[in-house]
Design a protein around this nucleic acid. Structure first.
Length: 571
DNA sequence: GCCGTTTTCGGCCCGACTGTTTTCAGTCG
């Protein structure tokens, strides 16, 4: 029973309670608990076994939900859920996923037409029976029919790099509108989450009408779903939803703050405001009807006694207390990075020579790089034998002479074999400046076996870095089952560095695990795993996730000077 | 159902847009 399974059950309970018209705060409690579980790095099943009393320490989980978690983990089910679905068909919750349908209308449709599944809903809508229900009409019937068709596309979040690609032309088009004082992307995009569900655009202007007009007529707009004076929403041909808000200067900071979220963070801050008899909304901070702040985000924070909090931290994971106590970390920045410690060349599956990669790294301002071509077990990548590595080393030495003002580390991405041994002989390992190890095969070992495998590799005295530690590919492959806490502990004890792989499809470690490692005192590296020159630019995605994991410059090893980094390797 | 520098009881974040209604409920973010 994984954390996500427990969270799903709580969300299911919340859905059914909503349909049954239960107390909204009780519903909110189940959703808050689900959210806590979704982002909790520690498996809740382990807590239940080791220290169940710790469950009640988790935010939004009290005595009752703690005991329900224990029940779910031990029995795999929750009696309350069964009880609720006796009163209301559990299939009704699927209806709520359709845009335009919420708990009230799902219930209404069930009560009046007996519709309780998606196929029945579609049949009723096509037959024009929905419009006969009091409170519904033909327009809603059309919305529902459209929604039924798009139901699947709707669910998918897109990777941050894809979102950037979709948004770029839209921003360029909008910039041509008159009267725009500023234009920013807010939402999870601004918080730099690894994926985004939609795009929130914010424009500062005193003349909204022409901007809204230009927005809804942007190229790539498939459908306009809302069209108001200050708010519009469209769906792009890619299926991505884009919301636009237009606010005047005196509200811009408040709106930017508000639409950056996260929702949980905003709610926590608004609670602070309520205590001070203030009201925060997207137009500003108000005492009674008088606006006392709103031009900038910093103003908004100041009214509740907080310094400005970087967007990447706004997840209600302790940043508000830390800000209040002056404990916010000074987050690492892209400019702090002095080297890139994973990349491939023509010697294996890369597209560039060693020298070309070295020159490109130097052009980025780096002081060092590691050439980490594959070892022989990774056949699909053309992994190198010891003889192949000797040729690579000669090439590195030659490139080093040609590009003297950047240090090229001899390295390898050494495959961790199924039994945890390394796919390279001791003599070649001894020649490497940096030993990076990672898993490329047998992803479906048991959790215990995978953990043993990686721990054994980390115990090898020559290993410096564990690459892409969970093996996931966003949207394509789940992380392999592994005890990440044990790996973090081993990395801490042995001084092994954990990689944040900056490929936007990997972002591995993810933000939650980065935070866990950083809190444990483990040092990390951010590497691009570049296979071509333009992929060296992925570094910023890795930095984003390091920031989301609360990392300061000191937590990231490749912010050090080349000498300091060498000293760290010797340790 | 949770939670406490107001509180162990009584609060719990806030507003825009749509479609339906004829003053507003429901949905959405």
């Amino acid at each position: 029973m994984e954390n996500l399974d427990v969270a799903r059950i709580f969300n299911e309970v919340a859905d059914l309670l909503e349909i049954q018209g239960a107390n909204t705060f009780r519903i909110r409690a189940y959703r808050a608990a689900a959210r806590t579980l979704e982002t909790l790095p520690t498996p809740v099943a382990a807590l239940v076994a080791a220290q169940p009393e710790a469950l009640e320490e988790l935010p939004g989980i009290g005595a009752d939900l703690a005991s329900k978690i224990v029940t779910i983990v031990k029995t795999g089910r929750l009696p309350l859920l069964r009880e609720l679905s006796r009163k209301t068909p559990a299939t009704l919750t699927a209806l709520m996923r359709i845009p335009g349908l919420g708990p009230k209308r799902a219930r209404l449709i069930f009560d009046t037409l007996g519709v309780k599944t998606l196929p029945q809903l579609e049949k009723a809508a096509r037959a024009g029976r929905l419009r006969e229900v009091k409170g519904l009409g033909p327009a809603l019937e059309q919305t529902i029919l459209r929604g039924l068709g798009q139901e699947k596309a709707h669910a998918a979040r897109v990777r941050i790099d894809q979102a950037e690609a979709y948004v770029r032309p839209l921003l360029e088009h909008l910039h041509g509108a008159p009267g725009i004082r500023s234009l920013e992307v807010a939402g999870s995009y601004r918080r730099r989450r690894e994926t985004v569900g939609d795009i929130d655009l914010l424009v500062c202007s005193t003349r909204p009408a022409p901007i809204a007009e230009r927005f809804v007529s942007s190229p790539g707009v498939r459908q306009v779903t809302a069209r108001g004076d200050t708010r519009c929403a469209v769906v792009l041909t890619s299926g991505l939803q884009v919301d636009l808000r237009i606010v005047p200067p005196r509200s811009y900071g408040a709106a930017l703050y508000y639409f950056t979220g996260s929702k949980a963070h905003n709610i926590a801050v608004r609670r602070l405001a309520v205590k001070r008899h203030l009201k925060i909304n997207e137009y500003g901070v108000f005492r009674g009807s008088r606006q006392i702040a709103g031009k900038t985000e910093a103003e908004v924070f100041r009214t509740v006694g907080l310094p400005w909090i970087p967007p990447e931290l706004r997840e209600d994971r302790g940043e508000i207390d830390a800000a209040r106590d002056g404990r916010l970390p000074r987050l690492v920045e892209l400019e702090d990075i002095r080297g890139d410690l994973q990349m491939h060349t023509v010697h294996t599956d890369g597209h560039e020579t060693v020298e070309a990669m070295a020159r490109a790294c130097r052009a980025r301002g780096y002081r060092y790089l590691a050439i980490t071509d594959h070892t022989k077990a990774v056949r699909v990548a053309g992994g190198l034998s010891p003889a192949g590595f000797r040729a690579l080393f000669r090439d590195i030495e030659r490139a080093q002479k040609a590009v003297p003002d950047i240090t090229i580390f001899k390295s390898a991405e050494v495959d961790i074999l199924e039994d945890g041994s390394l796919d390279l002989d001791e003599a070649t390992l001894a020649e490497l400046d940096v030993v990076l190890v990672s898993v490329h095969s047998k992803f479906n070992l048991s959790r215990a076996a995978m953990t043993r495998r990686i721990l054994k590799a980390l115990a090898h005295p020559r290993v410096h870095i564990l690459g892409h530690p969970t093996g996931r590919l966003i949207g394509r492959r789940e992380p392999y089952a592994v005890d990440i806490e044990a790996i973090v502990a081993a990395a801490r004890d042995r001084g092994v560095l954990l990689e944040i792989n900056a490929q936007p499809e990997r972002l591995d470690l993810n933000d939650t695990y980065v935070r866990m490692a950083r809190d444990a005192g483990v040092k990390l590296v951010i590497s691009t795993d570049a296979h071509r020159i333009d992929e060296l630019a992925f570094m910023r995605y890795g930095v984003d996730q390091a920031r989301r994991g609360w990392c300061a410059r000191g937590d990231i090893a490749n912010t050090r000077t080349v000498d300091a980094f060498r000293r760290l390797l010797r340790r």
